[in-house]
Each structure stands twice: as structure tokens, then as C-alpha cells.
Design a protein around this nucleic acid. Structure first.
Lengths: 186, 186
DNA sequence: ATATCTAAAATGAACGTTCATTCATTTTTT
DNA sequence: AAAAAATGAATGAACGTTCATTTTAGATAT
């Protein structure tokens, strides 16, 4: 059994269940089935642990979303595919969503670098640039396009996880993709 | 000088500057220019204080956004107006944005009721319903529409406050409104 | 005006608890 | 038996809250 991974997973579970505010090292150790001191064999401290987890999730997310990207497809197809992968990522592991949101919105909690926040958005930037040069995507500032892609995706996942809607319902995702696309297409 | 208000304002300032994680009663008292014990004359405790602040901001936000609403205008005009008011609210008082975001994404931190989160969205619901019955807004689930309105607004404000874009630049807002509108109009 | 009294408001040191981290000791692996 | 990994009790700092005491403000009497 990999203890490092067990520790990371237990942070994820606890942050989702109780929030950052109630997270403490003893709980993390208990949930992971190790002693409190053991955590310090794998991480420098609490901050290091949290940052390592965030970095891990970002890496997984980008990898999974970029998997959906195919240069031979149209921009629209790539857009749909990436939206789909991104939503899948969070629906498959809701803990990830909760953690990333809380981490992102806690200024100066554990981050030295504000720009870290935007690492999650790298796949979107790629698609945007290509669509714009091809004249298929609106020629408006990148940040506005970004808000029209990331914003809805983020909110719809939140609403789904809060049981305010059901993204698994037939046709629901397709309607969402189409509407989001109309916001960005030229 | 109203001490209750001074205390609330100092929470707002501190949460924005250092995050919930580093917030403590001593700092709140110092920032407000009162003794630690004084806070307990106005609030039952830390939770009560935080909840009171959130309630205050939600009330102000809804009031300000609904101010832009005018039944004699078209749905599109109302949409633009409300987007504008909502963005103004956060740009004028960025502390409010930071606080609301952090509060929203901290499950079980101070909330008994998850639904509280969605109070901020009441003005949007009103416009959506009316537009749908008039056939002007897409006939898709409310939650999806909501994500297409609230999501972009939320993200663009975040990007603006992080200096990734400038919403005060001429034409920027108009482009944003138009694009967001195209996502929801039938 | 000034002094005296009273209740409300405010103070901040003290308290009990919680927490992250350490490290002497024990357990496991080689 | 030596080295590496793991333990968890101990430590001291930090925190939310309390409450005995002090300060302030308003009313009343001199």
C-alpha cells in the first residue's frame, strides 16, 4: 500500500466532506490509516501536502482534457469533446471539484503564486487560439472567451453536484454544449 | 461610529487580504479598532459573524441587481442591465466578491443550509422565467440557463480582479454581454 | 456649571481547547 | 543485527470565548 497516496486521498475526502476549515493533521492520519507523524515522512508539512495534492489534480485534469483533443477534428468538435472530458473528470471524482474550488478561492492560503490558478485552463486556451485564427471563434479578448467556456462548465458541474440538475439526463449535455458554443462561435 | 459595521467591514477586508484560513478574532478586533471581547457584544460568535456578513452582502447584491430590472423593457435589455449591475457590484467592492466566493465554496464551514448558496441567483431566475415564457430565451432546463448566465459573469469578474483582463476598457463589456446573450437566446 | 451616581458599553488578561509539529521509542524490513 | 519506516505521546503556540474590571455616557442633584 502506498502511504503517500493514501494520505493525499484522505485529504481529498476530508476537504470535500468537511471543508478546509475543519481539516487537521490528526483526521488526515486517521482517514489514511497511519500515525500523525508518518505524514511528515512524506510531506514537509500541511502546506506542502495541500500544494502537492493540487498539483496532482491539475496534472490529471489537463492530461484527461487534452486527451479529447484531436487536430484532425473541427474546432467545434474539439470544443464539445473537451467540455465533455472536463465535465466527466469532475463528475467521476466530485472530490476533485470541491477541493480545487476551495483551493482556488482561498487567497494566500497556500499559494505563493496567483497564476497557479490558471494552470487548469491551459487546454481551453489552446482551442481558443486555434479557433480564432481560423475565424470560427469570435474575435474578442481571450479572457472573455475563457469566461464563456470555463464559467458555464464550472457552474453546471456545481449545480449537478448540488443536485440542482442532472447532467446524465438524456440530451442535457448536448443542449449545454450547443448553447455554450453559440456564445463563442463567430 | 458604528462598531457592528466596523467589525463586519474588517472581516471583509481580512478575508479578501488573507483568506478565511488566516482569519481570527484577534485580527478582526484589531482591524476594527475594538477589543476582542467587544465582538461578542454584537455577535454570538465567529460563525454568527460570518453568517451575518454573508446575509448582508446577499441582500445588497439582490437589491442592486433588481434595481436594473424594468418590466417595460425587453428581455434582452433587462439581461444586459442586470449583468451590468451585477458586475458593477463586484467591481465597486471587490472584497465582496472574494468573500462570497470563499463562503460559497466552503462546505459545512458555517452553513447549515446548502440552498443558501443559491440566494444570490434569485434575480437571474426571475429574468429567465419571463424570457422563456415569451419564447425569447431557449427552452432548456433552468440550471443550464443559469450556468450560462452566472458562470461567465462570475469568471469574467474573477479574471478582471486578477488583472487578466480589463472590463473598463471601451467595448469590452458590450462584447461580453452580446456573447453571453447568444448562449441563452432562442 | 459641577459633581455624583448608575447602567450600559467596552476592555483585555486569563482559560481551556485544539492543532501542527517533533522526536524518543518501537516495529518492520533487509 | 543493522537500517529504515512508522509510531503516538509530548510540546508549545494559537485560537475562540469568557468575565472581572474599567471606561464612558447620560441622568439627577447640588
Amino acid at each position: 500500500m502506498d502511504k503517500r497516496e493514501a494520505i493525499l486521498k484522505s485529504v481529498l475526502k476530508l476537504v470535500n466532506r468537511e471543508g478546509f476549515y475543519h481539516l487537521n493533521m490528526k483526521k488526515i492520519a486517521q482517514e489514511a490509516g497511519v500515525a500523525a507523524g508518518t505524514i511528515y515522512l512524506y510531506f514537509k508539512g500541511k502546506e506542502d501536502l495541500i500544494n502537492a495534492l493540487y498539483a496532482m489534480i491539475v496534472a490529471e485534469f489537463n492530461q484527461q482534457v487534452l486527451e479529447g483533443y484531436d487536430d484532425s477534428k473541427t474546432v467545434k468538435e474539439n470544443f464539445f469533446e473537451m467540455m465533455s472530458k472536463a465535465i466527466d473528470f469532475y463528475l467521476d471524482q466530485p472530490d476533485n471539484f470541491s477541493f480545487v474550488e476551495q483551493y482556488t478561492y482561498a487567497p494566500f492560503l497556500f499559494k505563493e503564486n496567483q497564476d497557479e490558478n490558471f494552470l487548469l485552463l491551459l487546454p481551453i486556451y489552446k482551442m481558443m487560439r486555434e479557433g480564432k485564427t481560423a475565424g470560427i471563434i469570435r474575435n474578442i479578448p481571450d479572457a472573455i472567451l475563457l469566461s464563456l467556456i470555463h464559467g458555464p462548465m464550472n457552474t453546471i458541474v456545481k449545480l449537478h453536484l448540488a443536485h440542482k440538475t442532472d447532467l446524465n439526463k438524456k440530451g442535457a449535455r448536448q443542449k449545454f454544449y450547443e448553447a455554450a458554443w453559440d456564445a463563442i462561435c463567430a
